[in-house]
Design a protein around this nucleic acid. Structure first.
Lengths: 196, 196
DNA sequence: AGTATGTTAGCACGACCGTGTTAACATGGG
DNA sequence: CCCATGTTAACACGGTCGTGCTAACATACT
């Protein structure tokens, strides 16, 4: 057998190279060639791993989900519901370069989804997963008496989900640390406001 | 002098054709050629009006701002602050095909902005204008005693702005009327929640 | 009617696109 | 060693890209 190549690692490297291209040039800058160059590969080698451009984008986005989830899992043992909620949300906001990249990729995917069924599917999945996560956070707060007893869980889920994604976008546009801090305050106020 | 061409109207028609291409194929589907074809023009004629692709996208986005603002202006005479706020916000959410198109263009712009200084500038302007509008709505509510007296106007602005954009994105991904109605409820709850 | 001028269509150019294909290459197991 | 096999590089193909440019066209004014 030939060279010992770790395929999973290779896929990650290429997906990360895709992130960097999106970060630097926007979604229209992404092509098999530009990503291959960014990853230091020939297009032939890249296509050995990802057969098509859509494949490339799909896996770039799935890496976003995977990375975010891996970070979030570290907080799930937190016993205090309020601290748990805030820790999880902090992992979803673009507070550093890595999470900013993830959010930029997310936006690129949403922008590109209308023209590609496969991308639309990934977009919808990501949406559902995050919405479910928000619902779990709300339910958890509810069960621990940290919300008004008559709170509408569904509506609170919608509100929290929208607040997270809205703030995330605005943090991309306005990357100042001052705004980031205000975003965190706003999240806290939103959580605490559930107590009625 | 030759043919009597209304330049402004022509620019609008081309900008709308750009919207349609973005709607149907995503931002990567936009090119001088595809937009010209969608508008029923030759690329030569289109480039007479918009010299470059960036020009095209800039004006497509400016048309979004202009259309939204024209709709919003019709509500500014509303005397009841709560009704005014809700009317304005309803004009910003993708509740019908036209406003959905505007939001899709907005997302496309944000996704493409990293690679183009001009697009980034338009993106930032749109962001600031909407944020200011949110601040005005909050201030108006505050002055009419519809918020808690000690409300943090800046934080409430951030929250309302994020809620609007977050819900708008989620309405794109989940276009069901049921979700649209829940989004409106969520907005109302957010406004009423300012009363403390 | 003649002409100046705004408008249009269409081609040329070099570059890059996504996608096949194919030949060289490197390396682990016999 | 050798050779089977996974990996890489490189090119070909038809197509589209953004962008200049030019020749034809249509019309309002003199």
């Amino acid at each position: 057998m030939p060279k010992l190549i770790n395929h999973d690692k290779r896929r990650e490297e290429i997906a990360e190279a895709t992130w960097r291209v999106i970060l630097a040039e926007g979604i229209s800058g992404v092509s098999i060639r530009t990503v291959a160059a960014e990853a230091g590969l020939s297009t032939g080698s890249l296509r050995h791993v990802f057969a098509s451009k859509t494949d490339l984008l799909v896996h770039a986005m799935q890496l976003v989900d995977q990375r975010a989830w891996k970070r979030i899992r570290r907080h799930l043992a937190e016993p205090d519901p309020r601290a748990l909620t805030l820790s999880v949300i902090r992992e979803l906001l673009p507070l550093d370069a890595e999470r900013r990249a993830e959010m930029e990729v997310n936006i690129a995917l949403i922008a590109e989804a209308p023209g590609d069924d496969q991308l639309r599917q990934v977009r919808d999945e990501t949406y559902e997963v995050l919405r479910d996560a928000c619902r779990q956070l709300i339910t958890n707060l509810h069960q621990h008496g940290l919300t008004a007893p008559d709170v509408d869980v569904d509506e609170a889920t919608t509100a929290l989900h929208a607040l997270i994604d809205g703030l995330a976008i605005h943090m991309l546009i306005n990357p100042s640390p001052a705004f980031a801090q205000q975003a965190l305050q706003t999240i806290e106020a939103g959580i605490d406001g559930l107590r009625g």
